[in-house]
Design a protein around this nucleic acid. Structure first.
Lengths: 233, 233
DNA sequence: ACAAAAGTGTTGAGAGTACACCCATGC
DNA sequence: GCATGGGTGTACTCTCAACACTTTTGT
C-alpha cells in the first residue's frame, strides 16, 4: 500500500485472501499430514489442505490458528508462515491469494483430534499422498522441503515429539522426516551433545526388550532458540 | 479457498493486497536500499519501501515486477518472495496485507535509474536508515537477515556484482553486506575454489596501484544453481 | 629499492564419518 | 548364556581459521 501516490485502496479490484495450514505430525512411524476431502466442486472428492478465508478483523496468524481450532479443536502448536501463493488460475472460481502456514503437532495432540467439524478429515502419509485439489501438491512439497531444512539447523523436531522420549525415538523421527534410515547411532548422539546441548535426561527410563533406555526431554532454552533463530519470522 | 465447506469467497469482507519490494544494491562501498518519500498522509514526509496494490489479473510476482518497472524503468533483476505481513493495524487507513519481495540489482543498473515517476526516490544506506513509514523498518530488518543468510549458502552475491570483478571486489561486497570487515583473504579465495567453482577468470586484468588483479565472472551454472537451491521458491 | 596490492602455502584445531566395541536387561 | 537393544570410544578424513609468505606491478 505504499505506492508513490497513495490512493485509498478501495479503488482496486480486490482478490480474496485465504490461509492454508499444512499440519504435520508423526504417527505410526510415519510422517503424516492432515487433509480434508472436498464435498463440493471444484475438485470435488479430492483431498485438500485445511484452510479458511481471512476475516478483515483478524491477523494472518490468527486466521491460521482459527483454522487449527476448527479442524482440530485446539491451537497450541508450532506455527510458522511458509509462502504466499498467488498465481491467477490457481482457484478456478475466482482470484484467491493463499498465505500458507505449516504447523507441527505432538503425537498425543494429533491423536485426540475430535474431528470437530462435519467434513471428512484424515491423516495421510506424506510418502503416499492422494490426488490433491488446487496447487496443494506444490504446497506440500514445499512444506516438506522447509521442514527438512529446519531440522538440519534447528531443534524443531521437538515440536513433533512427545514430552519425553528416548534417543532412539528421536533418531527415528529424524530418519522418518528425512527419509534416510541410515543415520549412525553413535554420531547422531554425538551431535546432540554438541554445545549448546538441546536435550537433557529426565532421570527416568523406558523398559524395552533389551537394556532400558534413558528418557530425555528438550531443554527449555533450546525451544526458545528455535523461535529466536527463525529466518522467517 | 479450501474451507471444509467451500463457499463462494465473495461472501467475505476482503482485505486489500499489496506487494512491497525491497530493492538492494551495492553503491559507493555501501549496501543501499531504494526508498520513496511519502507525499501524503499517513506518515507524510517519511520514507517507505516501493509498492503497489495487486491487480486482480496479475500474479504476485507480476505485481512486484510492475513495481520495479514503475520505480526503476526496468525489471531484469533477481527477485524473491520474502514474507507476508498482515497484522491488523499496520496501515491505519484500512486493512492491507502486504506480500513482500526482495530484489537484487547490479550497480550499473542501479545507477541508470531514471527516476521514472514523479515521486521522490533515493538510495539509502541500510546502516543509516531514516525513519520509515508503516512497519517498513521490520520488513527491511528481515530482508537484510535473509540476504545475509543466502549469502552464506548460495551464490546470490553475483546478482549484486557487475559482470566482471576482481576477487577483492567480491570480498568487499561480502564484507559490506555481512558488516564484517575481518574476512581473511586467503580463506575467502579458498572457498571460491571449492567444488563446484562459482567464478572463472575472464583472462583480463584490472590495473590498480600495485600488482594488477585478475578479472572474474560468475559461471552460468552457478547462477542457475542459485535459483535451483531456493528454499523459498 | 620500496610501497602497494595480488595471490599462495602451511599448520593446527575441530567437526563429521565409519565402525567396532561394551553394557544392562529379560528369558 | 544369549538375544536384544542401549550406549560409547577410536581412528581417519575433511573443513576451516590463522598467519606467514611470495609475486607482480608502479614510482
Amino acid at each position: 500500500m505504499q505506492a508513490a501516490n497513495p490512493v485509498e485502496p478501495v479503488h482496486y479490484d480486490r482478490p480474496t485472501v485465504a490461509v492454508d495450514v499444512v499440519i504435520f505430525s508423526l504417527l505410526d512411524d510415519d510422517l503424516k499430514v492432515l487433509l480434508i476431502r472436498r464435498n463440493a466442486p471444484p475438485f470435488q472428492g479430492m483431498w485438500a489442505i485445511p484452510g479458511s478465508f481471512v476475516h478483515s478483523d483478524e491477523s494472518l496468524e490468527a486466521a491460521a490458528l482459527r483454522t487449527l481450532q476448527e479442524e482440530m479443536g485446539f491451537q497450541d502448536v508450532y506455527l510458522e508462515q511458509l509462502y504466499t501463493f498467488g498465481d491467477i488460475g490457481r482457484d478456478p472460481r475466482t482470484r484467491v491469494i493463499s498465505v500458507t502456514y505449516f504447523a507441527l503437532m505432538q503425537p498425543d495432540m494429533a491423536q485426540r483430534r475430535a474431528n470437530v467439524d462435519a467434513g471428512e478429515t484424515a491423516w495421510h502419509s506424506m510418502y503416499h499422498l492422494p490426488e490433491l485439489a488446487f496447487d496443494h501438491k506444490l504446497i506440500l512439497d514445499y512444506a516438506l522441503k522447509r521442514l527438512r531444512y529446519k531440522l538440519e539447523y534447528s531443534a524443531v523436531a521437538f515440536e513433533l515429539m512427545p514430552d519425553e522420549f528416548t534417543l532412539r525415538e528421536l533418531q527415528e523421527a529424524y530418519m522418518i522426516i528425512l527419509d534416510d534410515h541410515t543415520l549412525d547411532k553413535a554420531n547422531f548422539r554425538k551431535r546432540l551433545r554438541h554445545e549448546p546441548p538441546i536435550v537433557e535426561p529426565t532421570g527416568e527410563v523406558r523398559k524395552t526388550k533389551g537394556r532400558p533406555a534413558a528418557l530425555y526431554r528438550f531443554r527449555e532454552d533450546a525451544k526458545r532458540e528455535v523461535k529466536a533463530r527463525r529466518l522467517f519470522p
